[in-house]
């Protein structure tokens, strides 16, 4: 039996780049879906953190993105696939403190260079791939007990 085929939930959301007024709505939806599915609080909070950071990065740097949420019996999987400038140097971008955020973004409290680090720290598995001029794709998995 292939356990991964028995998904409890799968859904898709869109993020619009540049729209800071709506920033956080996709992660808020993800959180409430996971809560309704009775996923343990600690897992929900981790999923909220990683999806929020990914969402803010799309709003800050990309044009748009599709988010896919999959809940399987033993894990929560979140994929954020954006159309945007891509990341030229992923290793550098992953470093805590590195940021290319402009003044406008910084005035709102973003640009600490901690978002990708938070994603890495709060997910059990994290993959990032990016193509300059095309976009970036993040894949985050959180294991449920």
């Amino acid at each position: 039996m292939e356990e991964t085929n028995r998904n409890i939930y799968s859904g898709q959301f869109d993020i619009e780049g540049g729209n800071f007024n709506a920033a956080g709505t996709v992660s808020t939806s993800i959180k409430s879906i996971l809560k309704k599915l009775n996923i343990p609080g600690e897992i929900v909070r981790k999923a909220a953190i990683v999806s929020y950071e990914a969402e803010i990065n799309v709003v800050s740097y990309a044009k748009k993105a599709v988010v896919r949420l999959t809940v399987a019996p033993k894990k929560v999987h979140i994929e954020v696939d954006d159309t945007g400038p891509g990341i030229p140097n992923i290793e550098l971008a992953m470093q805590e403190g590195y940021s290319t955020a402009d003044q406008r973004i910084r005035e709102m409290g973003f640009g600490a260079g901690m978002g990708l680090s938070n994603i890495k720290n709060y997910s059990d598995e994290f993959h990032i791939e990016s193509e300059v001029g095309k976009g970036t794709r993040l894949q985050m998995t959180i294991q449920t007990p």
Binding site: F20, G24, T25, T28, K31, R45, M108, G109
Partner: peptide
């Protein structure tokens, strides 16, 4: 405790409960 007043602080507080 913060000096940020922009609406983005609400999502952070809400997501982190």
């Amino acid at each position: 405790i913060t000096r940020q007043v922009h609406q983005n602080i609400v999502a952070v507080a809400s997501l982190k409960e």
